[in-house]
Amino acid sequence: MKNRRAYLMLALAVALGLGAVLLASRWLLRQTPSAAGRIVVAAADVNLGQRLGPDMFKLAEWPADALPPGALRDPAKLNGRVLKTSVLRGEPLSEAKLAPAGTLGGLSALIAEGKRAITVRVNDVVGVAGFALPGNFVDIIVHTQAGEGQQRERDISKIVLERILVLAVAQEVSRDDTKPRVVNAVTLEVTPEQAEHLDLARSVGTLSLALRNQVDPKPGVTGGATKGTLLGLHPAASAEPAAVQAPPPAARIQVAAAPAPPRHCIGVINGLRSSQECL
């Protein structure tokens, strides 16, 4: 009798335990139906300008309350698209990181709408010792000779373009490498007007790049540097001589006439005529 009661209690405990497990699992399923979502992430490190292939992305579970803005859920729409920014393995893909549909890839995919890419020749000095890397911003300085001989004092160095984005150095567009690379050409992103100015600047003088802070938008408004401003010299005197002023007219001195000495007169009577003679 006692063993039977023990078996019943054990069976009841097992049944209650199974019921508790089932209730807990059903409660958890109700609480987390949307706790995770499936989005497209990079399956490997992909550099900007590359065309995406099926082996470069995959679907991954992602918390629903932490989904990145614009996250993509349909991998079929990504095949053949071109990245305009580098992504790391496991990083979510979004429309903001993709070039417009139909882009063929390469450097042209990185150029913003309304902009142009132009390449300038540099060396280890002009190229900021190789620290002008893709993704950095630079200012363009031109040094031009305004004259010859004595007019060499009019030579000037002037910042002609500011906050210009470096798209590529040599033939590389990767923005992940922070090591300096000394190259002989730098490709810059400019507007059409800036492209004209840059082309004229490199034809009339020598160019230099000035690396600037990426988050500093303040313009560097300057008047340019000349030999006179560099050495603190005074500007040359005007070549036109000053007009010679005529001397003021001499003052006229009026001399008062001396008073005539007093004269003594006498009357003379000659017959019927009379006259007066003065001494």
Rank of each mutant, 00 (worst) to 15 (best):
Q31K: 14
T32H: 15
P33V: 12
A35W: 08
A35C: 08
A36G: 10
A36E: 14
G37I: 02
V41C: 07
V41G: 01
V41L: 08
V41W: 00
A42G: 03
A43L: 07
A44F: 09
V46A: 11
L48I: 11
G49P: 04
G49I: 02
G49E: 03
Q50K: 13
Q50H: 14
R51G: 02
R51N: 01
L52V: 05
G53T: 13
P54D: 14
D55W: 05
D55L: 13
F57V: 05
F57Y: 15
A60D: 06
E61F: 08
W62D: 01
W62Y: 12
A64Q: 12
D65I: 07
L67T: 06
P68E: 02
P68I: 04
A71G: 06
A71M: 03
A71P: 02
L72M: 15
R73F: 11
R73P: 01
P75Q: 11
K77T: 15
K77N: 09
L78A: 06
L78K: 02
G80C: 04
V82D: 00
L83T: 02
L83M: 07
K84S: 06
T85A: 14
T85M: 11
S86I: 03
V87C: 06
R89N: 13
G90P: 05
P92K: 04
L93C: 04
S94Y: 03
E95W: 09
K97H: 10
K97V: 06
L98Q: 04
A99S: 14
P100E: 10
P100W: 07
T103I: 04
T103H: 15
L104P: 08
G105M: 07
G105Y: 05
G106K: 06
L107F: 10
L107W: 02
A109H: 03
A112M: 09
A112R: 14
A112K: 11
K115E: 08
K115G: 01
K115Y: 08
A117T: 09
A117K: 06
A117Q: 07
I118S: 10
T119Q: 11
T119F: 06
V120T: 09
V120G: 04
V122K: 00
N123L: 07
D124T: 12
D124G: 09
D124K: 10
D124W: 05
V125F: 11
V125Q: 15
V126S: 10
V126R: 04
V128Q: 08
V128H: 01
G130K: 02
G130E: 08
F131D: 05
F131V: 09
A132N: 01
A132I: 03
A132T: 04
L133F: 07
P134W: 01
G135T: 07
N136R: 15
F137H: 14
F137G: 00
D139E: 12
I140Q: 00
I140F: 07
V142E: 05
H143L: 13
Q145G: 12
Q145Y: 14
